[in-house]
Design a protein around this nucleic acid. Structure first.
Lengths: 211, 211
DNA sequence: TTTTCCCTACTGGTTTTCCTGTATATTGAT
DNA sequence: ATCAATATACAGGAAAACCAGTAGGGAAAA
């Protein structure tokens, strides 16, 4: 019994990755690459008028952030299975993507076999996460909550100023507020990020992409 | 007049990138992919016994750092043209690679055309840097010296401990040395990285990939 | 062998950060 | 209109960081 092939859209701004994906999938007759795009907007306009089963979505697109792309895609066609793709394994991003509704996530060191597994499983309505991704998620659950704490606008601003090496007084002058206020913000920042001082504040801020 | 094809070695730990490169190069008869490897050590042992014209070298290998790979390759066969490949455009790394002797550098968003250009040019003994890479290099020259300052082993170690939020006393205890010594190291670090305090120290350390 | 670099350590002082707790005006959302 | 979140501000004190300069011993390089 022949199934009709699973229709795939590839979204990645690297020609060589697109070619690689095509090659890895070309042997398998269960899948059919229907189209490919190198940015987010083209993908979305295409999907307005055409359907697909699976979107293989690179996280680092030139125009639209991968995390933002997911809901946009699902908004247009809720029955599409989105599989995230990225080179590096950053727990916070993976977590965000899952929250936004991806059904699968793969690192770019996948083999063709894994890729096909992911696609077929997601097409059947299941989730699929590569073994490495699973390990990362497991670590991130046990070790610490990798959610981005919500920082206010002001806090983010002050955070960047701290990172620039400015002292409380410098910052206060720059923002025309009391040094005491700046101190309060700094304290709140350290509390939110659960660190004991400014140095590690900057470190986790960078890790969590807040800077 | 037919030239004999340029012999290429691909080194990248992502199967899909390898496949992509192969596809992008498969049309062109001037080049011939001789072999491919997914890590540094295999590449080096292969080159001990076999030659090649060009090595396409990914910067992020699982075992050996790309920057360290270049001299190792050139040490085995000085006449090989090494072309660096990476996803992201980090001036300091590109600079380091050039110092180590790469003849070309490309971002992974290259087109097949550019790729072939790079290979043929490098094979003729010229340099080739993608347009984006050139822009990055130009910026890095004008804006600031993106060289990594030379930190000693001890300094690097202490730097990471500072980033973890440890105080001078904590670090001193951990390393069984005087807090005063740790302070000295910290001061030297700040001086070398030209920053006024620990917070910005961590920031530039992250930027310069020292952490 | 001399020189240079690295790690170590100190004095003595100033500035900044960090802690704990409190409090009010403003803004935004329900 | 009211409640929650945000930005603002303060006090008082302990801890840590930062500044400037100096210096010895050991290892490695010239």
């Amino acid at each position: 019994m022949q199934h009709k092939p699973i229709h795939i859209i590839i979204v990645d701004d690297h020609p060589m990755v697109i070619e690689g994906l095509k090659t890895l999938l070309s042997d398998d007759k269960r899948v059919l690459i229907k189209n490919q795009f190198m940015n987010g907007t083209d993908t979305l306009t295409y999907l307005e008028h055409n359907s697909a089963d699976i979107v293989l979505l690179d996280v680092n697109l030139p125009d639209i952030n991968g995390v933002e792309m997911v809901p946009k895609i699902l908004n247009i066609r809720a029955n599409i299975g989105v599989i995230g793709l990225s080179t590096y394994s950053e727990p916070s991003i993976i977590n965000q993507m899952i929250k936004k509704g991806v059904k699968g996530y793969l690192l770019k060191n996948v083999t063709g076999e894994e890729l096909v597994n992911a696609i077929t499983q997601v097409h059947q309505g299941d989730f699929y996460f590569g073994s490495e991704v699973q390990k990362i998620l497991a670590d991130s659950v046990t070790q610490e909550s990798n959610d981005q704490p919500k920082l206010t606008r002001r806090e983010k601003h002050i955070l960047t100023l701290i990172a620039e090496g400015k002292t409380t007084n410098n910052i206060a002058e720059e923002l025309f507020i009391s040094p005491l206020t700046v101190e309060t913000h700094r304290r709140n920042l350290m509390q939110k990020l659960e660190v004991p001082n400014a140095a590690s504040l900057i470190k986790v801020a960078v890790e969590k992409h807040l800077i």
